[in-house]
Simulated assay, not measured.
Amino acid sequence: MYVPHFNAWDDQAAIRQMVADVGSAQLITTGPDGYPLATLLPVVWRGETVIAHLARANKHWKAIGADQPALLVVTGPQAYISPGWYAAKAEHGKVVPTWNYSVVQLTGRATVHDDVDWLQGAVDELVEHHEGHRDARWRTTDAPEKYIRGQLRAIVGLEIAVERVEAKAKLSQNRSEADRDGVVAGLLAEPSPDAHLVAEQMRVTGGVSR
């Protein structure tokens, strides 16, 4: 991933929190014909391992060999940045549109799991991740055991041993304070919730990668 020094993001706790908040990733591997395969998956990242699952009917998993290299791409809030928001537009006009975003790429080796007991543990962990904060949380034990076991047979598990973490926060860090203030104001006036989230990220970082 191309990461200019001012967009480099090395706050490991914040990186993990973003992955947890997004909760999904694009799994990208290479098929036997050399062409890339991609599937959006729910993920849980714990320690140096990411667990996920995909539908058994999805042929992607059949193209994943033992310890095959895999890339997981987790994309955070993103938004178009209008050059009209920059203070520099009125000063010299030498401004162009851009795109602000945060992204995490996890690279590692993938292992497919077809064992129902492993899948039960993976699904329970995923459910707990999303249900744990609820007062009336749902658990797989709330459904008939036979039904759950049948559902587990319709999916295949995936475990990625993470070898490299790359993160980028492109939040106008290379612009002046006046330009950044203009971008934040412009984003907050947009109807897109993502635009508001990007503005909040810019406020938190102060336009400086952390």
Rank of each mutant, 00 (worst) to 15 (best):
M1Q: 11
V3N: 13
H5D: 07
W9I: 08
M18R: 09
D21H: 05
A25S: 07
L27V: 03
T29I: 00
P32M: 03
P36A: 02
P36K: 00
L37K: 06
T39Y: 06
L41E: 02
W45R: 05
T49I: 13
I51V: 02
L54G: 13
A55L: 12
R56D: 08
A57M: 14
A57G: 14
N58A: 13
N58M: 12
N58Y: 12
H60W: 08
K62T: 15
K62W: 09
K62C: 12
A63D: 15
I64E: 09
Q68K: 05
P69T: 00
L71W: 05
V73I: 01
V74P: 12
T75H: 13
P77E: 10
P77H: 11
Q78E: 14
A79L: 13
I81F: 07
P83G: 04
G84C: 11
A87F: 04
E91N: 11
E91D: 15
V96W: 14
N100Q: 01
V104M: 01
Q105A: 06
T107A: 07
D114W: 01
D117F: 10
V123F: 13
D124Y: 10
E125R: 15
V127I: 14
E128P: 09
G132N: 15
R134M: 15
R137W: 01
W138F: 02
D142Y: 02
A143D: 03
A143K: 00
P144K: 05
P144N: 07
E145G: 12
E145N: 13
K146P: 10
Y147N: 08
L152K: 13
L152C: 14
L152M: 14
R153C: 15
A161S: 08
E163K: 01
E166A: 10
Q173L: 06
D181T: 08
V183M: 00
V184D: 04
V184W: 07
G186D: 01
L188G: 05
H196N: 03
V198C: 11
V198M: 09
V198F: 10
V198I: 14
A199G: 00
A199E: 04
R203E: 09
V204H: 07
T205S: 12
R210N: 09
